[in-house]
Design a protein around this nucleic acid. Sequence first.
DNA 1: AAAGCCTGCAACCGCCAGCGG
DNA 2: TCCGCTGGCGGTTGCAGGCTT
Length: 308
Amino acid sequence: MHVKNEEECYIKKGPWKAEEDEVLLNHVNKYGPRDWSSIRSKGLLHRTGKSCRLRWVNKLQPNLKNGCKFSVEEERVVIELQAEIGNKWAKIASYLQGRTDNDVKNFWSSRQKRLARILHTTTCTSKSQKNKTKVSEVQDGFTLEASKLSSSMEGESSSIMSQQSYSLSFNQNSEFIKMVPLPSSDINHAEQEFITPFESYKNTEQISFPQVPELKTDITFSMESQDLLARIDEPNFIDVFDPIHASSEYEIGVELPIGLPFFEPLSGNSGIGTRDRVENSKNSDSFFDDFPVDIFDDMEQPTSPSKL
DNA sequence: AAAGCCTGCAACCGCCAGCGG
DNA sequence: TCCGCTGGCGGTTGCAGGCTT
């Protein structure tokens, strides 16, 4: 029968209906979360086994945190593990109760897009509006000050790394990047409003980054930068920047995977959890995975120290 | 109020590894 | 050993709803 054959071959796609979910749940209750392909072969649903499995894993299995935003702690776990093991979403999700690989993947994707947008805005600004940015060249490269308010500026929850102020130093020649904690005096008083429970954590954890953090006290600022610094304590200092750029810049550091505690492996010999390994991974280019590949294209080439 | 933009999420696609015949 | 099937995983896409202008 041609019609019947068509019927059998028909594969439904798109959003799941409640009835389909019910059928799928019945199957799982009967046989457990397996034999996905038999659901179609038995004619229960016109969905592929893969589709059924995905629906179960991502939406129907019990104890899922559906519709619940990632907590600060969950964000921290994802950021840390991503830096450690890369885009192993299933693995990362296994560390988070009630989260699926799809959840983690979507979270990270959103985060990456946000970061890319922020940095794009920032780098464009650095070129066209030098007098309005906090990007200033230093002798051994250039320094991108990541002094910022937390992401709370935009009502976001990712504020884990937001309480410490950092300066990013790039060096074209040696291809390293280092985080330099800014002197606390550089932090605008207004930031105090955004202190979170992680403040205590910040105060006790060492920065885990390839380069030994050091205070950058000998930065030479341009005239424009000096002018800005002179006004840093003004209540409306942030208004010096236009709202978009201001909020963007203050978000930069929020996204930096630094200063995080280290995980011990939950089981097996995954090897996760040693500081050495984390540092090794960051000594590679894992840190740069956070940035769009062309992120530095818009930045001015620093003068080589050898040419000075 | 409406149009355009942005974001988060659900679902699909393609690749790959494991397994059994 | 080969081959096909199945499930797992990461990347990508499309859409709906919220937000902004």
